[in-house]
Design a protein around this nucleic acid. Structure first.
Lengths: 219, 219
DNA sequence: AAGAGTTTGATTGTTGACAATCATTGCATG
DNA sequence: CATGCAATGATTGTCAACAATCAAACTCTT
C-alpha cells in the first residue's frame, strides 16, 4: 500500500504541528486524542513520538507522558551554534566543489528571496529563506548534515512562528544571503565561512531583539 | 520504578549491539527474536527501533523489516565531514570560553590517552580516544552538538570495531590530540579549528588505509 | 526444461484489552 | 485551619491476538 511507514508519516505530521504551534511548547501529547485525530491506533503513534523524542522535539517524562519542548534564550543560542556548525560546513563544501548545478540551485533560491522582498510578501520571504537554507545543506551532498539540519530548522521555525513571521530588517537579510552565495560562487572558502557565521550572528540578534519587543520570556 | 523509559533502555542496548557488531551491518532485526532476547514485548522494542531509524542507524523497508545500515567509503567520509563540523564547532567554543574546569577535563582525557599509549594497551587507547572526543563535545555545553555527536560516534565505532581496534600510528594519533588541547588552552581559535580539521583528515586517512589493508569493501 | 501463476510460510503492521503508575480530590485528624 | 492520608480518575506502559503484506517454494502449463 504505502511506500512509507505510518510511523514516518505520523512523525512528519507531528513535526509540522509542533512547527506551526498547533502543538504548543510545554503541551502534553495525549496519546488517545492524537491517535483519534490522526486516525491510527496508539501503537504507531507511540512509535512516531519516540522518533521525535530522539530528535529532541519531545521530552519524555516516564509514567507522566510526552511534552513539547520549550525553548528559552539559551536554547535559541544553541540552535544557532549548531546551525552555524552545520551550514558553515555545508557552505564550505559547496565552495570547494563548485558543482555548476549546485551553484545554479543556490542562486535560484537566493533570487527567490529577492523576488519575495520586492513583492513585499513577508510570508513568501520567510518560506524562501528556509528554502534557501534547505538547498544550501542539501547541495553539500552530506546525508548526515542534512539529517542534523532538519531538526534544527523545525526548532528555528518554532521560534519564528512565535513572532508571526515578520522580519525586522528584510533588506539586510536578503543581502546577507546574496553575499554568502557570492562568496561560494567565487570559491572563497574562508570568506564563505565568515559570511555564514556573520549571517547566523545577525539572524540570532534579530530574533532575540524581536523577542524582546514582544516581551516573551519563552518561545 | 525506573527513571528511564524502557524504549530508551532498549534503544541504548541496540545501539551498543550495532556498535560492537553483535548486530552486523545489513542484518535484519527480527522483532520476535530481539523482544525475547531483551525480555520485553514487541511494542516497546518497536518504539526503540524507531528511535534508531530516526538516528539513521537502522534503515526501514516498509512491510519488509528493519536493517542495520551498511557503511561504504562514501559514508565514512560523510561521517568525518559531519564530525569535523560538530567537533570543530565544539573545540572553538571551548577555546573562546576557556572555562578552567573544561580545560582540566580535556587535559585529563588527553593524558589518559598518553598513559594508554605508554602502557601499550590498544583497547584502552581506543576507549580513551573516544572518551576524549566525548569530553570535547560535552565541554562545549551545546546540547544539540552533543546529541548530533552521539550518533556519529556510534557510526565511527562501527568502523573501528570492524578493524578490531588496532591503530596504525598511535603515536601520531596521541600527538594530534595533544596539539588540539594545546591550541585550545592557548585560546587560539583559528589554530584550534585547523588542528581539529587536520586530526579528522588524518583519522579518516588512517581508517581508509587500514580498510584497504584488510581488503574490505564494506564496513 | 523454462516460465508464469499459485500457494505457503514467516514476518511485519495494527488493534484493543489489561496492568501499573501518577496527579487530584475529598476526608479525617492533629 | 493546615496537614497527612486514602480513594478515585485518568493517563501511560505493556501485552498477546489478529490482519496484511511479502518472499520463496512448488506446481502446472507450454
Amino acid at each position: 500500500m504505502h511506500r512509507e511507514s505510518t510511523a514516518s508519516v505520523i512523525a512528519r505530521q507531528l513535526r509540522t504541528a509542533i512547527m506551526e504551534r498547533t502543538l504548543q511548547p510545554g503541551a502534553q501529547l495525549s496519546e488517545t486524542a492524537l491517535s483519534a485525530q490522526f486516525g491510527v491506533s496508539r501503537g504507531p503513534l507511540r512509535e512516531a513520538m519516540q522518533r521525535l523524542v530522539q530528535e529532541g522535539l519531545l521530552r519524555s517524562e516516564p509514567n507522566r507522558g510526552l511534552f513539547v519542548i520549550e525553548l528559552d534564550e539559551a536554547d535559541i543560542r544553541d540552535i544557532y551554534v549548531a546551525r552555524t556548525a552545520v551550514e558553515g560546513a555545508a557552505a564550505t563544501m559547496i565552495a570547494r566543489a563548485r558543482v555548476p548545478a549546485a551553484l545554479r540551485e543556490l542562486r535560484a533560491a537566493c533570487d527567490a528571496m529577492t523576488t519575495s522582498l520586492e513583492l513585499g510578501d513577508p510570508a513568501a520571504l520567510s518560506d524562501a529563506d528556509f528554502h534557501f537554507h534547505d538547498v544550501l545543506v542539501q547541495c553539500s551532498g552530506s546525508r548526515r548534515l542534512v539529517r542534523m539540519h532538519q531538526t534544527l530548522i523545525v526548532e528555528t521555525r518554532m521560534c519564528l512562528t512565535a513572532l508571526e513571521g515578520t522580519y525586522q530588517q528584510p533588506l539586510e537579510l536578503v543581502e546577507e544571503h546574496n553575499q554568502i552565495v557570492a562568496a561560494i560562487e567565487a570559491g572563497d572558502v574562508k570568506l564563505t565561512l565568515k559570511r555564514v557565521e556573520l549571517h547566523m550572528d545577525e539572524a540570532l540578534r534579530r530574533l532575540i531583539h524581536a523577542e524582546d519587543d514582544d516581551n516573551q520570556a519563552y518561545i
